[in-house]
């Protein structure tokens, strides 16, 4: 490894890491509750709502994230209604905002799938017991259904969180310079392909390890058996 190139590359990649973290953090913080809401919608008794949520999930899980990010950034910018609406234009027009929107919508669909199965797997007896105690539907949800479903869903969600970190790399295709974007630039600039790859991979692995460890700790805290 060439030390000059490493010292030259690391500051750039750290700047990129900040953007990656920003996108991933927004993706998890916004995508998690959004996914839960959609997951609940897929289990609702209202047929229209259920169909809307089902097709949203099918579409976003069935197409590549790259297509989604291109439709949001390049495609929607063509619609004049969106161009003339300041709020929507702020959301779509800026590369970073469009990337965050795409990540949130994408991870929302996968999170919804995880939580739908988690809500389906809840034992019926517990919910009936809660209802027999006279709990309101809201209380049944916040005190019984949600805590149990969260425990069910966490292991699957932790791999989804790692996927969010990786998917944020697609922001580099719409001019947002995050880790992968800088890595590409540095690779074609310095030709030290392997060196740059090793540093970049180490950064991604570090982020994933931190995210996975945090979720594992949460999982252990929430589990019944300590």
């Amino acid at each position: 490894m060439n030390l000059d190139i490493v010292t030259y590359a690391i500051p750039f990649l750290l700047v990129g890491a900040k953007t990656t973290l920003l996108i991933a953090l927004f993706g998890i913080v916004l995508g998690f509750p959004f996914g839960i809401v959609v997951g609940l919608g897929r289990g609702s008794k209202n047929r229209v709502l259920r169909n809307i949520c089902d097709s949203y999930c099918a579409i976003f899980r069935g197409t590549p994230m790259l297509v989604q990010i291109f439709i949001i950034y390049y495609g929607l910018a063509q619609v004049s209604f969106i161009r003339h609406n300041p709020v929507l234009w702020w959301l779509i027009g800026e590369g970073l905002n469009a990337a965050i929107l795409a990540v949130v919508l994408n991870t929302g669909a996968y999170t919804a799938e995880i939580f739908r199965t988690a809500f389906l797997s809840l034992p019926k007896g517990l919910i009936e017991a809660a209802e027999a105690c006279g709990m309101s539907p809201w209380h049944v949800f916040t005190r019984v259904k949600f805590p149990l479903a969260l425990r069910q869903a966490l292991p699957a969600y932790s791999s989804e969180a790692a996927i969010v970190v990786k998917e944020s790399s697609l922001a580099s295709t719409i001019t947002v310079l995050e880790i992968t974007g800088y890595a590409k630039r540095l690779m074609s600039e310095t030709f030290a392909i392997m060196d740059i790859f090793i540093i970049t991979a180490a950064l991604y692995l570090a982020m994933n390890v931190v995210a996975l460890t945090a979720l594992k700790l949460l999982e252990r805290r929430l589990s019944f058996v300590r």
């Binding site: 690779m187 970049t200 994933n208």
Partner: peptide
């Protein structure tokens, strides 16, 4: 599995 697919492609292409 821990690194974005895009990065693997860049590595193989530029490399």
């Amino acid at each position: 599995r821990g690194v974005p697919g895009l990065l693997v492609i860049y590595l193989l292409f530029f490399g």
